[in-house]
Design a protein around this nucleic acid. Structure first.
Lengths: 239, 239
DNA sequence: GTCGAACCCTGCCCCTGGGGCAAGGTCAAG
DNA sequence: CTTGACCTTGCCCCAGGGGCAGGGTTCGAC
């Protein structure tokens, strides 16, 4: 005949938890001694350890209650299922660890692997972090709007970036962000860009070409997504 | 500019969770469009995925809030600690799987490994399941009362059970449970038992000898823990 | 142009698995 | 005879949302 505290210690749970299990009907209320204390038997300890084991496995108390007075076969089946569940949770936690590792570093947490690879390419080309963030955010918006289209576009874009002239234009647009709007290089850059688009447009047909301007458009709502020089550039190219 | 549903899908959380994060101040309330719908940017998606990752790692929302506007070094340190935590949880879940395996089978879940081994010995000797349950429950009560003493006693008991005469007596006591109280074998058994105890007592000194009667005593409150024959046996041995 | 499906809004109460604290009664040791 | 460690009931609190009510909106199809 042991007290609630000893029982709880033995099973590795708190006294409060034991009383909670009584309330939920998982553990029968035992008899009381002359001063009203609950007095437990070894049988209760066995039951309580079963409860603790299932509870630690994440089984809801209501289901534990059902399991405890199910027949042994049903319990064995349920335990097998619970075990599978725990195995899955372990796998999921491992995945969480991978994500935590990514949280420390790259953008892999926020965009698809292809886009992450693309951003790494840009970084290697020497593109500014500001521009890369703009690209990243643009891709996020595209992926939410239409993951399939975004997958096609990123493939196209990665081919495009293999073209040396496109790369040069991209880097110069990036650099132009900080220029004064009156900079004499702007009209030349606008002209060169237009010529490249014209030449390229004739070759690629069905889809609208995906270009930095689209990313800027998509991310337009962000603060700092444009600059006086870019605005001027857009004017020049439109005119 | 995306809606709450798209944002939630992209981050892999529910719409309800997003609103919950707004209430908790984890995610800033975005602007509304003309019909009062919340409109999100890519920035919000980045933030939300960070929140989701930390939340899946089991970090409390209040702490996530602090982490999100801590400096990068503090965040890195916190992430390292969280990762350790997740690693520990994985280890604990693996332990839970072991326990679940034991739930299917033996008594290892309820008593110390030594006692479990002892119960297996008894099973191998052909002791009845009724008696084994009685032993198990006795050991549980002893372990709750005093784990150190129980450890000493189980060591003694396992030595004792190596004695062929003790084994024979143990098995006969077990068999006697079902005898009628008038069975003529009972006085002889009582006598033999007393003689064994007398012979053994002189050798072992300091501690009271642990014997089946103690287990019966401890488990006395259990239903079916005794029988007419055992009661008669106790009388014979005491007188 | 209108209909239905699929969204969105706020607000409220509900759940699990206990923890914490109050305001007592009890027990064993020194 | 006190002191500290137990035990009792009862009540409110927490996270992290889920579910439902009772509305408004948008979008595509027909």
């Amino acid at each position: 005949m042991i007290t609630i505290g000893r029982l709880a210690d033995y099973a590795g749970v708190t006294v409060k938890a034991v009383r909670h299990y009584h309330e939920r009907g998982l553990l029968p209320e035992p008899g009381r001694d002359s001063s009203g204390y609950r007095r437990y038997t070894a049988e209760d300890a066995v039951q309580l350890i079963k409860i603790r084991t299932l509870a630690q496995a994440g089984v809801p108390l209501a289901r534990i209650k059902d399991l405890l007075d199910a027949d042994p076969d049903a319990l064995a089946a349920a335990v097998a299922e619970i075990d599978r569940d725990v195995r899955d949770r372990i796998a999921q936690l491992r995945h969480v660890r991978d994500q935590l590792a990514q949280l420390r570093g790259g953008d892999g947490l926020f965009v698809s692997p292809e886009v992450a690879a693309h951003l790494d390419d840009l970084r290697r080309l020497g593109v500014s972090e500001r521009q890369i963030r703009l690209e990243r955010d643009g891709w996020i918006l595209m992926q939410t709007a239409s993951p399939e289209d975004a997958a096609l576009w990123i493939a196209e874009k990665r081919e495009l970036i293999a073209d040396p002239e496109f790369r040069a234009l991209y880097l110069e647009h990036d650099a132009a962000y900080d220029w004064p709007p009156s900079d004499p290089r702007l009209p030349a850059l606008a002209d060169r860009t237009r010529r490249w688009f014209a030449a390229h447009h004739s070759r690629s047909e069905t889809r609208p070409v995906h270009d930095p301007a689209v990313a800027r458009l998509a991310a337009r709502t962000q603060p700092g997504a444009s600059s006086p020089a870019w605005d001027r550039l857009a004017q020049l190219m439109a005119g």
